[in-house]
Design a protein around this nucleic acid. Structure first.
Lengths: 119, 119
DNA sequence: CAGGCATATGCTCATTGCAGCATATACGGT
DNA sequence: ACCGTATATGCTGCAATGAGCATATGCCTG
């Protein structure tokens, strides 16, 4: 997960991923499209491959890099655990503040109350 | 988007986000839970705030940091554009290869993970 | 099998980013 | 006003990382 995020966080790698969304590409094709030098493309692809975000298929002397969905799917799954943050209507922070604003003694701050929202 | 990814890609920040999933926390509470020094927590929170992943609400001398769903939602939306990669059955790479490989020599599927080391 | 194309690797340099420590600032209680 | 608590900021050192350039490796074709 962290590896996926780190791989995607780099601007050029992000662009590569977006480019590969439309189908596999050769290293040179990627470099030409994005205006990157070939060695740099290879290095970025190496990182993406280490993160399992791409797979390679040699074709003649070329290497066709294709996007792999699995890591992205895992990201999706992880994000699903946070859906409640925008799907549900109640604002945790506001609730908490409203709740303790009527509590006169702030010395005893109980942080966890009913925030356990099921997961 | 890139900022969101970069913010999440850092291990400790990732842990902070996961921690804040269960509700707002003060800086010290976060540090205590995750075993981080206070200054470092503040710095990480700064990055998270710059990425709009958290919001602050001052309470007495404390600052309560709460998770914001919006950036995560945007990530979700972005990922939705890649759903086809794992939801649909057809494999783009295989299609492409089959299509353009009228070359009789079968592109031998040898998945050699190790690069040939230079001698 | 020599030569050329496509890609990978090695090296250096510059930048970035995180951790640690010290210190500054904000706020509340006494 | 003074002190303690809570948090933020500044500075330094160090490790990681990306870009550029040169070069090695792999593979096809004549």
């Amino acid at each position: 997960m962290l590896e996926t995020l780190a791989a995607l966080a780099e601007p050029n790698r992000f662009r590569i991923v977006e480019l590969l969304r439309d189908g596999p590409q050769s290293v040179n094709a990627i470099g030409a499209t994005l205006g990157l030098n070939q060695p740099q493309v290879s290095k970025h692809l190496r990182v993406l491959k280490a993160a399992a975000l791409v797979e390679v298929e040699p074709l003649a002397q070329q290497r066709l890099y294709a996007l792999r969905g699995e890591p992205l799917r895992e990201l999706q799954t992880w994000l699903d655990g946070y859906r409640e943050l925008w799907e549900e209507r109640f604002d945790q922070l506001d609730n908490l503040l409203t709740e303790m604003s009527q509590a006169p003694s702030p010395t005893s701050i109980r942080k966890d109350k009913r925030h356990a929202k099921r997961k």
